[in-house]
Design a protein around this nucleic acid. Structure first.
Lengths: 117, 117
DNA sequence: ACGACACATTCCCTTATGGGTATATGATGA
DNA sequence: TCATCATATACCCATAAGGGAATGTGTCGT
């Protein structure tokens, strides 16, 4: 099996930096494709393809405005990522990391071996 | 060019469900590979490979314990994801989505064009 | 109806994925 | 030293990615 499709979920869709950039741009408000193309400095087809992925995971909504297509952010699906992340939040906000390090050093010193990779 | 490597950053590493599961298991504490294999119901080589990816993005630390290898969570790199997500948090927690929609409708009705920058 | 414009879709190509299976490495105990 | 346990690596395979370039589709102005 290959890697899961980028359209599988928000996790995969957002793993691509360009798509995060697009969402960042859309966070400021609705934008037509052309403007995204300009701001991203990417070719138009590429942007359209990224937008398609974002559409498929429902991270953006489209609206027809004459010959333009206005894309708008729909952050909802990002909540899933956030929900998963939340349980790890204390791990970096508080000093649990430090504590862990200390504990590990103690173990290593007491017990024997110090491989750390 | 192909998709960015899974080892590029936490975003890509965590896009894979199995790897999230591994982190979830490690969140409960240090674990040897064998136990992860059992709990995941995955073949051992696959687990080792996933762990390698997680190691490369520094999401886990290893410690040698006799012939076992104890893996431990290192949530630090997840902070980057969280930091990116934070700016979207209001979009789903509060009714900004709804507000946006209303504002947009107003704009459409009044002005016609929805540029926002 | 026609040409310009704004996007979307398609095809080609290189690259890496993730699972399966087999094998290598490293530590332990007899 | 040898067999065994615990992991890691190497290979093979099917799949899809993301960029480049060309083309299709729908809209607007004249």
């Amino acid at each position: 099996m290959a890697r899961a499709a980028t359209t599988t979920d928000a996790f995969n869709a957002v793993a691509e930096p360009r798509r995060r950039q697009i969402l960042d741009l859309l966070a400021a408000g609705e934008r037509p494709v052309g403007e995204l193309v300009t701001r991203l400095g990417l070719a138009q087809p590429q942007v359209s393809k990224h937008l398609k992925v974002l559409r498929e995971v429902d991270l953006v909504h489209v609206r027809d405005e004459g010959r333009q297509r206005m894309y708008r952010l729909n952050a909802g699906p990002l909540k899933g990522i956030h929900d998963w992340l939340v349980k790890y939040e204390q791990s970096w906000n508080e000093r649990f990391d430090l504590m862990d390090a200390v504990i590990e050093e103690l173990k290593e010193a007491e017990e024997r071996d110090g491989r750390d990779d």
